[in-house]
Amino acid sequence: MEHKLDKLTENISDIKTLIHTFNKTLENIEHRLSRLEQMDSIEHRVEVNQIDLSDIKESLQRIEDVQSTVVKEIKNYSGNGEDIKYINRRLDSHLIKLAKAEEEIIILKNK
Protein backbone atom coordinates (compact mmCIF):
# COMPACT_ATOMS: atom_id res chain seq x y z
CA MET A 1 0.00 0.00 0.00
CA GLU A 2 2.80 2.40 0.86
CA HIS A 3 4.48 1.58 -2.43
CA LYS A 4 1.33 2.57 -4.33
CA LEU A 5 1.07 5.79 -2.31
CA ASP A 6 4.70 6.67 -3.06
CA LYS A 7 4.14 5.92 -6.73
CA LEU A 8 1.00 8.10 -6.73
CA THR A 9 2.88 10.94 -5.03
CA GLU A 10 5.67 10.59 -7.57
CA ASN A 11 3.18 10.70 -10.43
CA ILE A 12 1.53 13.80 -8.98
CA SER A 13 4.93 15.46 -8.71
CA ASP A 14 5.69 14.54 -12.33
CA ILE A 15 2.32 15.95 -13.41
CA LYS A 16 3.05 19.21 -11.56
CA THR A 17 6.45 19.44 -13.24
CA LEU A 18 4.88 18.81 -16.65
CA ILE A 19 2.22 21.45 -16.03
CA HIS A 20 4.87 23.94 -14.95
CA THR A 21 6.94 23.18 -18.07
CA PHE A 22 3.84 23.46 -20.22
CA ASN A 23 3.03 26.87 -18.68
CA LYS A 24 6.57 28.12 -19.39
CA THR A 25 6.33 26.88 -22.97
CA LEU A 26 2.92 28.51 -23.37
CA GLU A 27 4.21 31.84 -22.03
CA ASN A 28 7.14 31.64 -24.45
CA ILE A 29 4.75 30.95 -27.35
CA GLU A 30 2.48 33.84 -26.31
CA HIS A 31 5.48 36.16 -26.14
CA ARG A 32 6.62 35.10 -29.60
CA LEU A 33 3.10 35.51 -30.98
CA SER A 34 2.80 39.01 -29.56
CA ARG A 35 6.11 39.93 -31.21
CA LEU A 36 4.89 38.38 -34.45
CA GLU A 37 1.63 40.37 -34.24
CA GLN A 38 3.64 43.54 -33.76
CA MET A 39 5.75 42.70 -36.80
CA ASP A 40 2.64 41.88 -38.82
CA SER A 41 1.06 45.20 -37.91
CA ILE A 42 4.25 47.06 -38.85
CA GLU A 43 4.48 45.17 -42.14
CA HIS A 44 0.80 45.82 -42.76
CA ARG A 45 1.27 49.53 -42.14
CA VAL A 46 4.23 49.57 -44.50
CA GLU A 47 2.24 47.73 -47.18
CA VAL A 48 -0.74 50.04 -46.79
CA ASN A 49 1.48 53.11 -46.92
CA GLN A 50 3.26 51.79 -50.00
CA ILE A 51 -0.07 51.20 -51.70
CA ASP A 52 -1.23 54.65 -50.70
CA LEU A 53 1.99 56.22 -51.95
CA SER A 54 1.82 54.36 -55.25
CA ASP A 55 -1.84 55.35 -55.67
CA ILE A 56 -0.96 58.97 -54.94
CA LYS A 57 1.94 58.82 -57.38
CA GLU A 58 -0.31 57.40 -60.11
CA SER A 59 -2.94 60.06 -59.43
CA LEU A 60 -0.36 62.83 -59.62
CA GLN A 61 0.96 61.45 -62.89
CA ARG A 62 -2.58 61.40 -64.33
CA ILE A 63 -3.16 64.97 -63.16
CA GLU A 64 0.11 66.07 -64.75
CA ASP A 65 -0.88 64.34 -68.00
CA VAL A 66 -4.26 66.10 -68.02
CA GLN A 67 -2.64 69.43 -67.21
CA SER A 68 -0.13 69.06 -70.01
CA THR A 69 -2.99 68.22 -72.40
CA VAL A 70 -4.93 71.28 -71.22
CA VAL A 71 -1.86 73.48 -71.62
CA LYS A 72 -1.40 72.19 -75.18
CA GLU A 73 -5.05 72.91 -75.97
CA ILE A 74 -4.79 76.40 -74.50
CA LYS A 75 -1.70 77.05 -76.61
CA ASN A 76 -3.64 75.88 -79.66
CA TYR A 77 -6.50 78.25 -78.79
CA SER A 78 -4.24 81.13 -77.82
CA GLY A 79 -4.42 82.39 -81.37
CA ASN A 80 -8.23 82.33 -81.03
CA GLY A 81 -8.63 84.52 -77.96
CA GLU A 82 -12.10 85.56 -79.09
CA ASP A 83 -13.30 81.94 -78.98
CA ILE A 84 -12.11 81.59 -75.38
CA LYS A 85 -13.82 84.85 -74.37
CA TYR A 86 -17.04 83.66 -76.04
CA ILE A 87 -16.85 80.32 -74.17
CA ASN A 88 -16.23 82.14 -70.88
CA ARG A 89 -19.25 84.41 -71.44
CA ARG A 90 -21.44 81.38 -72.20
CA LEU A 91 -20.21 79.62 -69.08
CA ASP A 92 -20.86 82.74 -66.99
CA SER A 93 -24.40 83.01 -68.32
CA HIS A 94 -25.05 79.33 -67.54
CA LEU A 95 -23.70 79.79 -64.02
CA ILE A 96 -26.00 82.76 -63.50
CA LYS A 97 -28.98 80.71 -64.72
CA LEU A 98 -28.05 77.87 -62.34
CA ALA A 99 -27.72 80.28 -59.42
CA LYS A 100 -31.16 81.77 -60.16
CA ALA A 101 -32.70 78.30 -60.40
CA GLU A 102 -31.13 77.28 -57.07
CA GLU A 103 -32.42 80.48 -55.47
CA GLU A 104 -35.94 79.79 -56.74
CA ILE A 105 -35.78 76.21 -55.42
CA ILE A 106 -34.73 77.47 -51.99
CA ILE A 107 -37.56 80.01 -51.98
CA LEU A 108 -40.07 77.32 -52.95
CA LYS A 109 -38.79 74.97 -50.21
CA ASN A 110 -39.16 77.70 -47.59
CA LYS A 111 -42.81 78.38 -48.54
Rank of each mutant, 00 (worst) to 15 (best):
L60S: 04
K85Q: 11
I29Q: 07
A101I: 04
H44C: 11
G81M: 05
I19F: 06
I42L: 15
R62K: 09
I74R: 07
H44M: 09
S93I: 02
R89F: 07
D92W: 00
I63M: 03
L98A: 05
N23V: 07
K7V: 05
K24S: 08
M39K: 15
S41F: 12
E73C: 08
E27D: 12
E2N: 10
T69K: 08
I56V: 15
R62H: 02
K7M: 04
D92H: 00
D83R: 03
L33K: 07
L5W: 05
S34Y: 13
H94D: 07
L95P: 00
K24V: 07
H31T: 12
D6H: 13
R35S: 14
S13H: 04
E27W: 02
I63W: 01
S54I: 05
S59A: 13
I87K: 05
K4R: 11
S68K: 11
I63R: 07
L5Q: 10
N49C: 06
K85A: 05
I12A: 05
N76H: 00
E43S: 10
G81E: 01
K4T: 08
E58H: 06
L60M: 10
L36P: 04
E82I: 01
M39V: 11
E27R: 08
D55E: 15
N88L: 03
E104A: 04
N28H: 09
S78G: 02
S41W: 10
E102A: 06
I107D: 12
I74M: 05
L91W: 02
K24R: 14
H3Y: 11
K100R: 09
Q67D: 10
E10Q: 08
I29R: 03
N49F: 07
I107Y: 12
K75S: 03
K97H: 06
E104M: 05
H20E: 12
K75G: 00
S13D: 05
Q50L: 09
R45V: 02
H94W: 11
L95S: 07
I106K: 15
N76S: 02
Y77M: 09
Q38Y: 08
D40T: 14
H20R: 12
E27Q: 09
S93K: 10
M1R: 10
E73M: 08
L98G: 01
H31R: 15
S59H: 14
V71R: 09
I56S: 15
E82S: 06
D92L: 01
S41V: 05
K109Q: 14
K109N: 15
E103N: 06
K7D: 06
N80I: 00
S59E: 14
L33T: 05
I15K: 14
D14T: 06
V71Y: 03
S34W: 13
L26Q: 15
N28I: 02
N28W: 02
D40Q: 15
K24H: 11
E2I: 04
Q67S: 09
R62E: 04
D6P: 01
S34P: 04
E104C: 01
M39G: 14
D6T: 07
K75Q: 04
R62A: 00
E30F: 01
D52I: 11
I106C: 13
L108I: 09
D83W: 01
K109I: 11
